[in-house]
Amino acid sequence: MRIGRPLTAVALIGFVALMLLPLYSMIVLASAPDDGDLSGLGFHGFALFDNIGQIMTDGRFPRYLMNSVLIASAVSVLDVAISAAAGYALARLRFPGRAALLNLVVIALSLTPAVVMIPVFVMLSEIGWLNSYQGLIAPFAASALGVFLVRQFALGIPVQMLHAARVDGASELRIFLRIAVPLLRPALLTVLLLQFLAQWDNLIWPLIAASEQELWTLPLALSSFEGEHGIVYHLQTAAALISILPPLVLFSFLQRYYVSGLTLGGVKR
């Protein structure tokens, strides 16, 4: 067993190196001045900032970047607001429609997006919302996972605390905003982060609902990078690198909220 330990360590480090190799080659490729060497193993000059400058000044890339920021932010803020309200109400208030909401959340959790995609597309095309910001935002304005996560967390808010506030004469809305929301902060940050990352990476919906280039987001721009510039791998990789940075930065600050969202249900508490 003692002999096994250094071996384990070496094997682990080897595995991590293998996992990181594509990332290293991404930086090499994004820094290349041309497409001369695509192996991504060795640097041939360092043109990363030239490449990024070229992408940002040439074509519509800044517009796509802004669209992504705008849509992912709007969606995640809306989702947090709607999920927080609904999740708290489900956990701590009795009201008509409570059972209906619970059923709707369970239904939405068990459905796959592929099922609702076509009818939502048809519906938005009927009301003229294709190729509009609202058409890219509204279908994701809340989430079953968000409501569920907030509800689970809100079940931990002591009922006595809410009662005490009621006795003091606080309105229900005030109790929600001033007592529940601060206590729900970790759950709300998890929802915000998960939804922002999901929308930042959403390819299929903009692909379907935004044919006009003014509304394209980063994933769409990356997926048809070749079309605009010809196949220029080093620029395409630099653009991909730009697209992965915000999620990595967000993640490094909010790591524990991300992991708690992921492992929910996987671990017995």
């Binding site: 607001a81 709607i82 999920s83 309200a85 609904a86 708290y88 109400a89 489900l90 208030l93 009795r94 009201f95 008509p96 429609g97 409570r98 209906a100 909401l101 709707l104 959340v105 239904i107 939405a108 304005a141 809340a142 079953a144 409501v147 309105s171 229900e172 809305l173 929600f176």
Partner: peptide, 16 residues
């Protein structure tokens, strides 16, 4: 409580 609950839940119900 009923009115507050229904009000808080309404946007989610409409969405789902």
């Amino acid at each position: 409580e009923a009115r507050a609950g229904a009000g808080l839940a309404a946007p989610a119900i409409v969405y789902f």
